[in-house]
Design a protein around this nucleic acid. Structure first.
Lengths: 335, 335
DNA sequence: CTGAAAGCGCTAACAT
DNA sequence: ATGTTAGCGCTTTCAG
C-alpha cells in the first residue's frame, strides 16, 4: 500500500486536515507544525494521490483531444499531431493531462456526452474532422466546455480556432512581389479544397492591390498529386506570358511542379521562383528546398490549450477566431 | 449537480448498493427490482461517474504514453504517432484511456515515478527516445508496470517491443531476388544508424544464403538526405558490375537515388529496381512510386497496448520481443 | 492555529 | 435478494 496522507499525519503527530493544509499552502499553520509535517513527508517519501484530490475537488484536471485516428493518419496529416503536441504542452503547464480519443464523426456526439457526464474530463478539444451539426446541437444544449480546432463549414455555435489561410496566401504573394517576381501563377488543389481556395483568395487580393492582372491559365485547380501537378505546370508554361513565380497550394503540388520545370531545364529560382505552404517534411527535402509560408500549427495547439482552460474556468466565454503566425521560410526555390 | 447513484436509488426506492449491483451486472438481483432500477436510470439519464468508480476500485484505467514531443516532431517522426494511434485503439477496446505526456530524457525518471505514485495511471508505455539507465534502475526498483517501444541500446531490465528491422531487410532482398534482380546494392544511413544497419544485416544474410558476392562499393553509408544519396548512387553506378537493384535504407535516400537515376536516363524499374522501407508519405508520392517493405507501426502500437494491459494485470510478466508484420508493398519501382 | 467530521460517488464486504 | 456500512484519499467547513 502506498503511503497516504494518514501516514504522514500519524508520523507528524497531527491530523490529516492539517497535513492537507500545508500541502495546499493556504490557511494559517504554525511554522513549527509545518516543518514537522514537511519532515514527515520527506521521510515517508509521500506523494499525494492526485486522483483522490481531483475527485474530492470535483474536477478531473484533464481534457480530451477528440479526433479521428485511422491507420496512416500520421503520414497523411502530420499537422494534426503537431497541434496535439502544442496542446499537450499548454495543458501540462497548467497541470492538466491530455487524453487522446479516436472516434468517428458518427460516434463523436455520443462519446463526448458520455465522457462529459462520466467525468472523464473537464473539457474537450475537438478536431474539425469529427464535428457535425448534431454535435453542435448537443454541445450547445448540454453546455459542454469545448473548443473546435478548424473552422466549421456549417452554421454553428461552436467555439473554434483556425489558421488564417487567406492571410498566408497574402504573405506568399507579397513576398514574391518584394523579391522582384512580377507575374505570379497559382497551382491549387481542387475547388472543394477550402484551404487551397483561401490561400488563393489571399494571393488574389494582393495582386489586385498592386493592379496586377492574372492571365486565365495562370490559376489552376486539380488533385494534389504528382501527375496532375506536372500537368498543371505545363498548362501554365504554355501561356503567352510565362509567370516569373509559381505559388503551389501545398507540397505535393510543388513536387510535381518542380519536376516539370526540372525536365524542361527551367532554372529555379533564377527563371521561375516557387513558394509553397507548410513545414511539411517534403518542403525541406525536395530539390531545390522549397521556400514556404509556414504556419505554426504547434502554436495553434498551444493557443487551443490556453483557450480550453479559459473555457473550463468560464464556460460562457465564446471564442471564434483565427490564430495566425505565418512566416516566410526562405530556402532555395526563391531569389 | 449531476445525477448520482443516490438519485437513482431514491427514484427506484432502493439502496445504492443494489443500484451498484445491477450496474455491475453481478450478484443476484430480482428481475423486478432490476427493471425498476433500469427504468430510473433511463428516466434520470444517469451515467456513473467513472472517476469515482475507478477511485473506489483503486485503479485509474489509464496508461500514459511517455515520449519527447518537441516542435516539428510530427513531421520528423510520424511513425511515433502511428504507434500511438495503435496504442490508443488497443487501450480503448479495454476501456482504458491514453494520456500523452511529453518529457525530456532527463525528466522522464522523475516524472514517471511521480505520476505512478500520484496514481495518474496504472502503467506507462515509454518511447525508447526517453529511456536511460537511470530510468531502468528506477522502474526496476519501484516495480512500475511499463513497456518500452523500441529496443534499448544498453543493458537493461526493461520490458520492450520493437520492429525486427533485420527481418525487414531479409524480406527486401528475398523479394528482389524472386523478381529476378540478381545483383543488389544497398544505400544506407550512417553506420551509427541502427535501423539502417539492421536492415543491411538482413539483406546480407539473404545474399550469403544465395552465395551472392557483393562488390565492395555496392554498399554505401552516409547521411540520409538528397545530396548524399545522389552521391552514393553515383558511387554505386561507377562500379564495374552495375547492380540490377538498389535497396535504400529509407525514403530520403531513395529520393536522392531515383533522382540520380532519372538524371542519367536509367529506367526504373526496367534497368534498375528500387526497394525502400516504410509507408512514409514520401514513398507513395515519389515518381516512380516506391516499392517498399512496410512495417506496420500502427500494429506495433496495438501490440504494445495489449502487452501493457497484461503487465498491469500481472506485473511480473516479462516481455522482450520483436514484433513484426512487415510486408512488401509493390508499386512502380520494381518489376 | 488545529482537528473532527462530513462529503466527493462509487464498490464490496457483511448483515439481514 | 436487498440494505447497511465502511472504506478509497483527499478537501473543506466548522468548532474549538
Amino acid at each position: 500500500m502506498a503511503v497516504t496522507i494518514k501516514d504522514v499525519a500519524k508520523q507528524a503527530h497531527t491530523s490529516i486536515a492539517t497535513v492537507s493544509k500545508v500541502l495546499n499552502g493556504s490557511y494559517s499553520i504554525s511554522q513549527e507544525t509545518a516543518d514537522r509535517i514537511q519532515k514527515a513527508i520527506q521521510e515517508l517519501d509521500y506523494r499525494p494521490n492526485l486522483r483522490a484530490r481531483n475527485f474530492s475537488k470535483q474536477m478531473t484536471k484533464t481534457v480530451v483531444w477528440v479526433t479521428s485516428l485511422e491507420k496512416n493518419i500520421s503520414f497523411l496529416n502530420p499537422h494534426m499531431f503537431e497541434i496535439m503536441c502544442g496542446l499537450e504542452k499548454a495543458l501540462f503547464l497548467k497541470d492538466y493531462s491530455l487524453i487522446i480519443k479516436s472516434i468517428s464523426v458518427q460516434d463523436a456526439v455520443g462519446y463526448i456526452k458520455e465522457a462529459y457526464y462520466a467525468k472523464i474530463a473537464d473539457g474537450f478539444v475537438i478536431h474539425a474532422s469529427v464535428i457535425s451539426p448534431e454535435l453542435d446541437e448537443m454541445i450547445e444544449k448540454e453546455g459542454i466546455p469545448h473548443l473546435v480546432v478548424g473552422m466549421p463549414d456549417f452554421l454553428n455555435h461552436f467555439c473554434w480556432v483556425d489558421v488564417d489561410n487567406r492571410f498566408a496566401g497574402e504573405l506568399a504573394a507579397k513576398f514574391l512581389l518584394e523579391q522582384g517576381y512580377q507575374t505570379l501563377a497559382f497551382l491549387g488543389g481542387t475547388q472543394e479544397d477550402k484551404i487551397s481556395m483561401h490561400r488563393l483568395s489571399g494571393v488574389m487580393s494582393v495582386l489586385k492591390e498592386h493592379d496586377l492582372i492574372v492571365p486565365k491559365n495562370h490559376v489552376q485547380h486539380g488533385e494534389s498529386e504528382y501527375e496532375n501537378a506536372y500537368r498543371m505546370t505545363e498548362q501554365v508554361l504554355e501561356s503567352d506570358e510565362k509567370p516569373q513565380a509559381i505559388i503551389c497550394a501545398n507540397n505535393y503540388i510543388a513536387y510535381g511542379c518542380i519536376s516539370a520545370l526540372h525536365d524542361r531545364n527551367i532554372e529555379v529560382p533564377e527563371t521561375i521562383g516557387i513558394v509553397a505552404f507548410d513545414q511539411h517534411p517534403f518542403s525541406g527535402i525536395l530539390k531545390p528546398k522549397l521556400t514556404v509560408v509556414n504556419i505554426d500549427v504547434f502554436d495553434l495547439g498551444v493557443q487551443a490549450g490556453k483557450y480550453i482552460l479559459q473555457k473550463i474556468r468560464k464556460p460562457n466565454l465564446h471564442i471564434q477566431s483565427y490564430i495566425t503566425c505565418p512566416e516566410i521560410i526562405v530556402r532555395e526555390s526563391t531569389k
